[in-house]
Design a protein around this nucleic acid. Sequence first.
DNA 1: ATTAGCACTCGATGATGTAGAGTGCTAATA
DNA 2: TATTAGCACTCTACATCATCGAGTGCTAAT
Lengths: 347, 347
Amino acid sequence: MELDDRKVKILQAIIKNYLETGEPVGSRTISKLSDLNLSSATIRNEMADLEELGYIVQPHTSAGRIPSDKGYRFYVDTMMEEKVEELNNIKADLEEKADKIENLLQHVAKLLSVNTNYATMVTTPKYRSRKCKFIQLTEIDEKNVLAVIVLEGNIVKNKMIQANEYLDKEMVLKLNLVMNSFLQGLDLDEISLGIVQKMKEQAGEHERLISDILDAVAKAMQEEGNLEVYTSGVTNMLSYPELNDGKDVKDLIFTLEDKKELAMLADQDLEYDSAEGNGRIQVYIGNETPIDSMKNCSVVTATYELEEGVYGKVGIIGPKRMDYERVVGTLKNLMGQLDDIFKNKQS
Amino acid sequence: MELDDRKVKILQAIIKNYLETGEPVGSRTISKLSDLNLSSATIRNEMADLEELGYIVQPHTSAGRIPSDKGYRFYVDTMMEEKVEELNNIKADLEEKADKIENLLQHVAKLLSVNTNYATMVTTPKYRSRKCKFIQLTEIDEKNVLAVIVLEGNIVKNKMIQANEYLDKEMVLKLNLVMNSFLQGLDLDEISLGIVQKMKEQAGEHERLISDILDAVAKAMQEEGNLEVYTSGVTNMLSYPELNDGKDVKDLIFTLEDKKELAMLADQDLEYDSAEGNGRIQVYIGNETPIDSMKNCSVVTATYELEEGVYGKVGIIGPKRMDYERVVGTLKNLMGQLDDIFKNKQS
DNA sequence: ATTAGCACTCGATGATGTAGAGTGCTAATA
DNA sequence: TATTAGCACTCTACATCATCGAGTGCTAAT
């Protein structure tokens, strides 16, 4: 048995209706709603077929049908039309925050959750290996040296380093010179022990300090590799009764609060997605997410490109009956706006 | 009618029992439990008195009694004994994160929530007005200048500034000199328009750039005045049935996610508390919190001192029947450990 | 191939009854 | 006078039961 044209239409009607109402939909509803002019009995037969094929399920005997994961998947893959959803004034709103990328991303999460009534997550962008652009050491007082580390892409990191020895200005200048001449243009993997040794030689008696500084530099570079995850709209999940039963919500909210699993989810297809290019949308339905507590949810992610080769993700988490058309439309729109902002920022 | 000795004992027994079980406690229970050797009938009479006095309430006729806010308040003020609760190995654990205060505070929130099974909040410390220690401008590339702003207390802020004009090294050096000679030692309120004018004079044609830099400096200083709030253990709130009814939890979780109200709560008594000295503990019971969604909760806060005159707050949010003794004990212990860490860090 | 008709299933809803916990009051007691 | 035993009363929680309505699957007629 295959999906003929009529079955597709019926399936579509079922899903559309279910997305709207959240109630299992029965044969009579479809009979009246669709333009097929079929009696409920015929619809019933077709529905039995659709169930056998795995596209819909009955919550219990004598209830209507609801889409199965496979049904949603079919819908998303072949029948969905994106609604272009304008996020008005967002650009101005966001540009204001653009001086610090973390703030901007957090704000994006907030905006999305408010606009969609779902939960949202945004990751910081993931850099491959950042090269060191330059390092600047400054004496703060007798005991502390501030290392300002600028990485490729103008990522700035500060590390306070405790010096056990007194440093005069000349020494600091010299150290600056040494650090920069050796480290400029290198990434974490390229800083070998050999290089470290040479630096120590040149620095004379300040071996210990050099070690500490290098530690700080290494840490700074490493930090950039970690995805941070911002979430928003967690409370929205409590509004959907199909998620709100029993302790399932608790697990779900825990996942959203803990963020570790979210980071993994965002990370997993990042390479592939970014290869596909900016703006790529992914939909995970129910069990398709690798996260256990989300088996009753759907997750839609989009990849944004901060700059050449630097990608992060935006995700929307909602019930399986989320409004996919709107969500996908909104995300695409958002990606466009972010693109503009990031491009302007660079130029 | 006054609280005589026996009433106090009975009240204590009721509260203790209720804290343990979470169930309304009846006269028979108290009769058996306490060492007063009274029949349940006598207890009943006393309980009627206690209710009249407002220390306990009946959820409904023919249920036992539970403490009222007034009852809890009396308990916390006069009968509670702190349990000293060791947070083992926390110090080592925290010291590792101590290089960045935000990380440390976030970790504190996490640790507390895991240890207590309540929700926790930690604010960043609040500086009064930070004076500017020094400013360093660095040319990153033709278009960008990085301003590293170090405030009193070695708070480091980075601001990237877009330059519309080309800057050679000499110019940057000169600007550095101008900025520092004028701004060092000043706080936000002390930078007057007069000073700004003089700076612009000295900088010659770079008026616009000076403006941008000053904006950045002002922003950096202002940011430090804002309390950031970290929360953890939000999900724990779903474990307490007395909070989990209806939409109350939703509001509560929203408050914990939104954080604005938490910041206000933390801010409100900060001045007073810090005047009282480090480690001060505050207990807000039910309606005593200014936050509406927390009227069924109790909040216990403690003030920590990062350094001379710089205070922040740690708070634990739980049901009104939270284990006050343990919570207060834990917080005091934590304050001690934080103290050690911060003191060591400075020296 | 479609449809009308019908028996059947199941969840949701509300009414009813019961058990148990706890109370307040009264009258007896020390 | 303070305490207590005893008892009628109240209220909740829980289970049982009947009913209603939505929706189904199947059969036989079209």
